[in-house]
Amino acid sequence: MSLKIYCLHYAASDRVVWLCEELSELVPSFKYELFVYERGMEASEGKKMLVSLHAAGTAPTMVDSTVSPTITLAESGAIIEYLIHVHGQGHFSVSLSAGPHAYAEYSHWYNWAGASFQAFLDANLLGQALTALKGAPIPEDGMAYLVHQAFKNRTLNHLKQLDDRLARSKYLAGNEITAVEFYMIFSLTTFRVFLPVDLAGHANVLRYLADITARPAYRRTMEKAEKGLQPLIQPLVPLFPFDVLLGAASWDTVPGLVKDGQ
């Protein structure tokens, strides 16, 4: 019987691996197995494995056979909550016992991370992809252009919300790390290898990322899940070409990124 986490490189998997590494420090009985695959198309080893585990076929996927019957989850937000409450003794959660104000902040930012911030980043990425496929910008007199601009503007508003919040609080739900950070981290770091979100001018967000990525558990996450990729906390992250994203080349072939000691 075991708890297994299945991941792809450069995916939202980082959220769950980081949580597992933190729980490994706090809960002596917490153990997990990690399986990491290259990103790839439908016929790739990783994709076929994920599809065999869950109909979603997405990373991360969790398989918990320490309970009977076995539980399989494929949404990172759900996996985070499950691990915290089932295996993590409630670490990194905020309950109603903390009071309605603390609970409201926690609930708001946890849901905002996925339903607002990441959702609009995904929409921005789609607009960028459509532009690249067409070989020309979206015409400015069309609905697609207006919608894409609205998505981009909303992301700018989101970054301001984040920076303003982090000017008042060390972390998003207060002065201690919570599940919010695990859910948020991918959007502000690894996701930016796909979409050029510039954090220049958002000093509080950059401070927040520096604090998080200095944690030993986060550093171990990058070693185990991302081949030693250095924390992506600079204001503008280099975009990764397809050969890197699909595992045909290493991340340290990307201009602007080098391994320690090189």
Rank of each mutant, 00 (worst) to 15 (best):
K4P: 03
I5T: 05
I5P: 00
Y6V: 01
C7I: 02
C7K: 03
C7G: 04
L8R: 08
A12M: 08
R15A: 09
V16P: 00
V16A: 05
C20W: 07
C20A: 11
S29D: 00
S29I: 01
Y32G: 04
V36M: 01
A43M: 13
S44M: 05
S44Y: 00
E45W: 09
V51H: 11
V51M: 13
S52F: 08
S52C: 06
A56T: 08
A56H: 13
T58E: 15
S65N: 10
T66N: 04
V67C: 08
V67P: 02
S68I: 08
I71Y: 08
E75V: 01
E75N: 01
E75Q: 10
A78M: 07
A78D: 05
I79Y: 02
I80H: 03
Y82M: 07
G88I: 00
V94D: 02
S95V: 05
L96W: 10
A102P: 06
Y103V: 00
A104E: 10
Y106F: 04
H108A: 00
W109T: 04
F117E: 04
L121E: 11
L121A: 13
D122E: 14
G127A: 15
L130W: 12
A132T: 10
L133A: 15
K134V: 09
G135Q: 09
P137N: 10
I138W: 10
P139Q: 12
D141F: 11
D141A: 12
G142V: 15
M143N: 14
A144D: 14
Y145N: 10
V147R: 14
Q149G: 12
Q149I: 15
A150R: 15
A150L: 15
F151K: 13
N153V: 12
N153L: 14
T155S: 13
L156I: 13
N157H: 15
H158F: 14
H158C: 13
L162A: 07
D164L: 13
D164F: 12
R165H: 06
A167C: 07
A173I: 02
E176D: 15
F182T: 01
F182P: 01
M184D: 02
I185K: 02
F186D: 01
S187L: 00
L188V: 12
T189K: 02
T190C: 09
T190L: 08
F194Q: 03
A200F: 14
G201M: 08
V205W: 07
V205Y: 10
D211F: 09
D211V: 11
D211T: 10
A214T: 04
R219Q: 13
R219C: 02
R220N: 09
M222W: 01
E223D: 08
E223A: 02
E226Q: 14
K227R: 14
L229I: 06
L229E: 05
Q230W: 00
Q230C: 06
P231E: 05
L232W: 01
V237M: 09
P238I: 02
F242D: 14
F242S: 12
L246S: 08
G247D: 07
D252R: 09
G256Y: 08
G256R: 09
Q262L: 11
